[in-house]
């Protein structure tokens, strides 16, 4: 059982790394830092809906650390952590209420991710005048969350039940 969990974590984190790499190959379409699809969030959604809150938190933390160490630096780690942790917290809380669809959870998570990045940017850059960025990142977070939400709902529906629950209950 324990081995199985370790393997599942490894699988999902490896997938997160691959998705980050794939995303880094796509050139930035907008001249605003932070506007991106956030494909790795797919992994967090799968963990959240197929494994559990605790597993989703652990996988979220590990993928933030590993992706930043592989593709980024100390500053990108701070941005990734601020966005990823806020988004993870919002998605877990919304999911726990049991009142929202995956799509809604993902959209709120996408926006929360970008709000977290704006907040850390305010601290690091020492400026309050980021309303323009917040505006763009709010809508881009909504759009990215929508896309990832649809994708995750499909993936979670198609993944065989036995992949995550087999041998545990």
């Amino acid at each position: 059982m324990k081995t199985r969990r370790v393997a599942q974590y490894g699988l999902l984190i490896a997938l997160a790394l691959v998705l980050s790499y794939v995303e880094s190959l796509v050139p930035a379409f907008f001249a605003v830092p932070g506007v991106k699809l956030g494909l790795t969030n797919l992994v967090v959604m799968v963990a959240l809906y197929r494994m559990g809150d605790r597993d989703a938190i652990i996988i979220n933390l590990l993928r933030i650390l590993l992706v930043s160490m592989t593709f980024g630096n100390a500053f990108s780690l701070m941005y990734a952590a601020a966005g990823g942790l806020l988004s993870g917290a919002v998605m877990i809380l919304l999911k726990r209420t049991g009142k929202f669809k995956m799509l809604t959870v993902s959209i709120a998570g996408g926006i929360a991710h970008n709000v977290g990045q704006i907040l850390i940017a305010m601290v690091l850059l020492g400026t309050w005048r980021v309303s323009y960025y917040l505006l763009i990142l709010w809508w881009s977070g909504l759009a990215a969350g929508f896309a990832i939400g649809i994708l995750s709902a499909q993936v979670v529906r198609r993944l065989p039940e036995s992949l995550f629950n087999g041998g545990q209950r």
Partner: peptide, 25 residues
């Protein structure tokens, strides 16, 4: 339907805040 209502409420709130930001800027 109950779940859908919560979803719509939250999404409407998120869109409204976005529109508010747009108007403010």
């Amino acid at each position: 339907p109950l779940k859908k209502r919560y979803d719509l409420l939250l999404l409407a709130a998120l869109v409204l805040v976005g529109l508010g930001l747009t108007a403010f800027v």
